[in-house]
Computed example of a mutant assay.
Amino acid sequence: MPYLTTNDSVQLFYKDWGNVTGPPVFLSHGWPLNSDNWENQMFFLANQGYRAVAYDRRGHGRSDQPWFGNDVDTWAGDIAQIIEELDLKDTILIGHSTGGGDITRYVTNHGSERVKGMVLIDTITPYIIQTPETPNGVPISVFDSFRDAMLKDRSYFFQQVPSGPFFGYNRPGVKPSQGQIDSWWAQGMQAGFKATYDTTFSWETDFREEMKKIDFPVLVIHGDDDQVVPFKAGGAENLKYLKNATLKVYEGGPHGLPNVEIDGINNDILNFSKSLG
């Protein structure tokens, strides 16, 4: 299995699927998951001739679990090392939830020379905390309750999140997939406690000013029934700061779009890539 050793001696696991000479896509997962959560997108894109690369963020999945470095800047540096090590060029960056934050910070910290476009799916950008200036954001007390729940019983909390708001299984008429719930829980419990706890603070990051520096094409995808990152806090808000972005809305879509709208998301990414030439 491929691993990369970072500058601070952390072993990062990554997957490299498909045509090694094909157009590259780099996928960054949400919390508290790992690259396995992208398997449907990676399999689809690899079969379309793409080189699909995804990593397990430090502290998650099969990567090491260091005590320090569970923050957006460090993750951006980790991504930079992988992209440079594999010599990916004209890359399409794809991020879901927390993963949208670290690929954004990768661009603003390390440049866009290797980037062709970006896809943000239900991401924590541009700024999702509720303030007088951002009344549609998430109250900080919600994230405090997440942290309290993890300290009390992480395993139980990691059952409740996918059983309810993450996939929208708490909505009337929505049939839950026990397989999706079990997979989410297993990935979450494979991650380190410190990393999953620390990552919740990354959701308080304000990306608005740095997003103004991004001028390449960006596809923003958001479900309008996202109970984790509310549509009015994310979604079209990203377009206020990005110079060259389009929005795709999934009506009634939950936070876990890559898992519950597999065909739609796969084709959104493919069509976006083809539109870039």
Rank of each mutant, 00 (worst) to 15 (best):
F216N: 02
I221E: 07
A233I: 07
V174S: 09
F143P: 00
V138P: 01
A233S: 12
D148P: 00
T200Q: 13
H110C: 04
Q178T: 10
A149N: 13
S177L: 06
S163P: 05
F231R: 05
Q187E: 10
M189H: 06
K232L: 13
V119G: 02
Y241D: 03
I124V: 14
S155M: 09
I140C: 00
T134R: 08
F201H: 10
E204H: 10
I121F: 13
R105V: 02
F167K: 04
Q178L: 11
D215E: 10
E113P: 04
T134Y: 03
V119L: 04
K194A: 15
T123L: 00
I129L: 13
S141Y: 00
T205G: 01
P230L: 09
K240R: 09
V115D: 06
D148S: 11
I181M: 06
D148V: 09
V218C: 05
Y197K: 04
K152S: 12
K152P: 04
P126Q: 11
T199N: 11
L219F: 08
V115C: 07
W185E: 10
G235V: 01
F216G: 00
I129V: 14
K232N: 08
P176M: 12
K152H: 12
D206P: 00
I128E: 02
R105A: 02
Y197R: 06
V115G: 04
D182R: 10
H222D: 12
G223M: 10
Q190F: 01
T108A: 01
D148L: 08
P126E: 12
I124Y: 08
K212C: 03
G111V: 08
P217V: 03
W184V: 02
W185R: 15
P176K: 15
F193L: 10
A236V: 13
T131P: 00
V174A: 06
R105F: 10
V161I: 15
D215N: 13
R154M: 14
V161Q: 04
G173E: 13
S141V: 03
P139F: 01
P176Y: 12
D215T: 13
F167P: 00
P135R: 01
G192R: 12
W203Q: 08
Q130A: 10
Q160H: 07
V228E: 11
A195Q: 06
L151Q: 13
V174Y: 12
L239C: 04
T104G: 02
D226L: 05
